[in-house]
Amino acid sequence: MIAYQFSARVLPEEKWPALSASFRDLTLEHSLTYARAAARRIGADVQFLMLTTPDGQPVAAACLRIKHVPGLRRGIAWLAAGPLVQHVDRPDPDAATLRAVLAALRTYAQESGHILRLRFPATPWHDVALLDQLARSEAFLPTDRSPTYRTVVVDCTQDEDTLMRALHGKWRNPLRNALKAGLDLDIVPIAQAADRFHPMYTEVQAAKGFRPDIPPEFYYALEGADFAHEVLFARKDGTDIAAMTLGRAGSNAVYLFGATLDTGRRLNAGHYLMWHSMLRCRDLGLKYFDLGGIDPEANPSVTRYKLRTGGTELRAAGPYEFRPAGAGSTLISIAETIHARLKKLRS
């Protein structure tokens, strides 16, 4: 038996920004601005849930992107970086509360017929081993159908001297050289500077051959009160030599894209921009700056670069999957497998 009983109810879209803003663990993936665009990109629907105590007090919230199977009226509900559980008017949830949240989400999935997949946000206060245990207790099992997430997170509540001391010596020295190189910093909303950023990004992309799952163009047009996206430029003698974009929602920020030209690399402009991104987050009163993920096997050099910033290496709990009882889950899985194979053939 779980200690608490919470219920989940669907919330109208217009009420989501106010509810999500009342959680300290809000990230861009749970912003209305991002969620609508992300769902539209894959032909999914967005659904917002509020989880409440028996007397109607909110304890958690979830933004779902639901991809329906044609003709089945059910499908796969994806809950990225959630559920939100750190309500501003409540202490951080204990294990019993977290289990009750998962139980309420399981009940929602069973009643809706959707396969529910979720991955918690990568935050320092989450105990991943505990969440693994609680997920199993509520029939959420690990799945490889959704991506895992490892990253480095910088605590931006620290003062500048503390942030500087936390840097690895092999990171701090290039930064000091960059700070002496006469670089200028320019910070502009991406909507006003995409035409400056994009040529730099495509040049670096062509040289290095990488291809992100979600390209930067997806973000350029995103505008909303609950999501901000800006670009930091490093300039030398009036010319852009490097750029880095940040997404912000609530008290959290995430590194999205970066591009450093040959001149910028010689002047350590990447270190310069990452450092000023930390200071920018601190000056804005943000708590955490997520450096955008790491992959030690596929990209060890970038992983090493991010780890040397003095941030904390984290793994997000999950992804987990709950499959409702009945034939519907089997049909959904078959449809997903067929879709994935056709997509692979087309690509």
Rank of each mutant, 00 (worst) to 15 (best):
A103G: 14
R304P: 07
L331C: 05
R9I: 13
R136V: 04
N252I: 12
R323Q: 01
L284R: 07
Y219P: 01
A193F: 06
I66M: 13
I42D: 03
R145Y: 11
L51I: 13
G113K: 14
R36C: 11
L49N: 08
D186E: 15
E14Y: 13
R24H: 01
L291P: 09
L222G: 07
R40T: 08
E336M: 11
C156R: 04
F210N: 04
V85T: 06
A77P: 02
I214C: 07
L163Y: 01
L141N: 02
D195T: 09
G318N: 05
V153E: 12
A104W: 03
A298S: 12
A221N: 10
R73F: 09
K343D: 14
L314C: 03
Q5D: 14
A38Y: 10
R150S: 13
G43Q: 00
F322S: 04
S333T: 15
D195C: 00
I2Y: 02
L130G: 04
D55L: 14
L26H: 06
D132M: 07
V128M: 06
T53S: 13
T52G: 05
K306H: 03
G82N: 02
L28Y: 13
R74D: 06
Q133R: 10
N299D: 15
E138I: 02
A335G: 11
E138H: 01
G311A: 01
Y272M: 01
I332S: 07
M274D: 05
P70R: 09
P319G: 03
A21I: 02
L279F: 00
D283M: 01
T148V: 04
L284I: 06
Q110R: 15
I190E: 03
E111T: 01
R346N: 14
K344H: 14
L291H: 07
G285T: 07
R99V: 04
H87N: 06
A35K: 06
P54T: 10
A122K: 09
H339M: 09
R346A: 15
K208T: 11
A259M: 09
G250M: 06
L291K: 08
F48G: 05
A39E: 07
A178Q: 11
E313R: 09
D237R: 13
D262I: 15
R172I: 00
V88N: 07
V101E: 00
F233K: 02
P319Q: 03
S31T: 08
C281D: 08
L131F: 15
E321Y: 04
R9G: 11
T330V: 15
G270M: 14
T330E: 11
T303F: 01
L331R: 11
T148P: 00
L331V: 12
E138C: 05
L28P: 04
D92V: 05
L167S: 04
Q133Y: 02
L183P: 02
V101Y: 00
Q205S: 08
L118M: 08
D213H: 15
Y220N: 03
A3V: 12
D226P: 05
M1E: 10
T97E: 12
V302H: 02
P215S: 10
Q192E: 15
E230D: 11
A242I: 00
G247Q: 03
G82I: 04
I42Y: 05
R165P: 01
F48I: 10
P319M: 08
A178E: 09
W78L: 10
A253M: 13
